[in-house]
């Protein structure tokens, strides 16, 4: 059961849910595979209550030696960080890659402290610099890109979902699987239960058109045209960024993003939304994205198919009017 871990310079940590790896963790695996030295095998660590099936699948698919870490109910990021720190030390790893999920976002910094290394959160890209890998990450709401390199090791990286090409499968033999356990350490924090805080707006998840408003709309009174527009589209729904909901302009069930709904409509019309990755993560699957923003450097324009550099408060009534007119002409 407690076979020693194989040595490896690079560990990829994969959370599994419902027997499947969490998608962002495959981005972490891709990055880990690219950071591993030539001829070296990345060590996979699978975290789940019952990790063995996923561990066997992935060990076969990618040919990596794999640790199946069974995670006790109630184990926190802090208690797992201690277990992973031990494994990282045992493997002699320099790099630890995790998917940028809320759970890893808490785990990675604690792991960096316990392992005596550093933490690079939200990695989007890597390039080879003279002194080793250089990582790119968004700062200032995605308006600037920071290039950063570690000075202390192990370097613990969280990798943004959708940022890497899918990991390359192996044609070689399956990696061996070893087992570890992460218990729930007594911690002074006790869960009293999970509750539903907000429901989800009916029709949002399978909407054909989403008109989404952000803080740039200024105030609730400015949302009239956005509301009219949403009603013009077949299966159209009005939604918002997190601030638009926190400010009370829209109910929280209308929020799009990592902590809200994930949508994939034919049309996503983003109005006064900056395009922070926490928002974009919830609308990346949209087929046609139009962004209205008065700042041409707004990161939303990087994910938009079509950009409108305008004051959204002035522009949306014009657009609603034009569309209403066109619908009337077309409909008669």
């Amino acid at each position: 059961m407690n076979a020693p871990l194989p040595r490896s310079s690079c560990v990829a940590v994969v959370q599994a849910q419902g027997g499947q790896p969490v998608p962002a963790c495959l981005d972490a695996l891709s990055l880990a595979l690219s950071l591993s030295g030539a001829g070296e095998r990345t060590l996979l660590a699978i975290l789940a209550p019952n990790p063995e099936p996923v561990a066997r699948d992935l060990a076969g698919q990618y040919g990596c030696p794999t640790v199946a870490v069974s995670v006790a109910d109630g184990a926190s990021a802090g208690s797992l960080a201690a277990v992973l720190a031990g494994m990282v030390r045992e493997a002699g790893a320099q790099w630890v890659c995790l998917g940028h999920t809320p759970f890893s976002a808490d785990l990675a910094p604690a792991l960096a402290v316990l392992a005596g290394g550093c933490c690079v959160p939200g990695v989007e890209a890597v390039e080879r610099g003279e002194g080793g890998p250089v990582f790119s990450r968004s700062v200032a709401g995605g308006r600037l890109i920071q290039k950063i390199s570690p000075l202390a090791f192990p370097a613990v990286l969280t990798v943004l979902g959708g940022s890497q090409t899918p990991p390359e499968e192996s044609v070689g033999p399956a990696g061996e699987v070893v087992f570890r356990e992460a218990g729930a350490a007594p911690e002074g924090i006790r869960s009293l239960g999970v509750l539903r805080r907000t429901g989800q707006e009916p029709g949002l998840a399978d909407a054909e058109a989403v008109v989404a408003v952000g803080r740039g709309m200024g105030c609730e009174e400015n949302l009239g045209a956005a509301r009219r527009l949403a009603a013009l589209f077949p299966r159209g729904v009005l939604a918002g960024s997190r601030p638009a909901c926190d400010l009370g302009w829209l109910p929280h069930r209308c929020q799009v993003g990592i902590t809200g709904a994930t949508v994939a409509p034919a049309l996503y019309l983003a109005c006064g939304i900056s395009g922070a990755f926490q928002h974009v993560a919830g609308m990346r699957g949209s087929r046609f994205v139009v962004a209205v923003n008065r700042d041409e450097n707004a990161p939303i324009f990087h994910v938009a198919d079509l950009g409108v550099k305008e004051d959204a408060v002035n522009f949306l009534p014009l657009l609603a009017q034009a569309c209403e007119k066109r619908r009337k002409e077309g409909g008669s």
């Binding site: 960096a112 290394g117 550093c118 690079v120 610099g129 250089v134 700062v139 308006r143 600037l144 890109i145 920071q146 290039k147 950063i148 390199s149 570690p150 000075l151 202390a152 041409e296 450097n297 990161p299 324009f301 990087h302 938009a304 950009g307």
Partner: peptide
């Protein structure tokens, strides 16, 4: 423990 090498505008769309 980290070195920030550069912080810059992304290439324009």
């Amino acid at each position: 423990r980290l070195r920030s090498l550069e912080t810059a505008l992304p290439p324009p769309p």
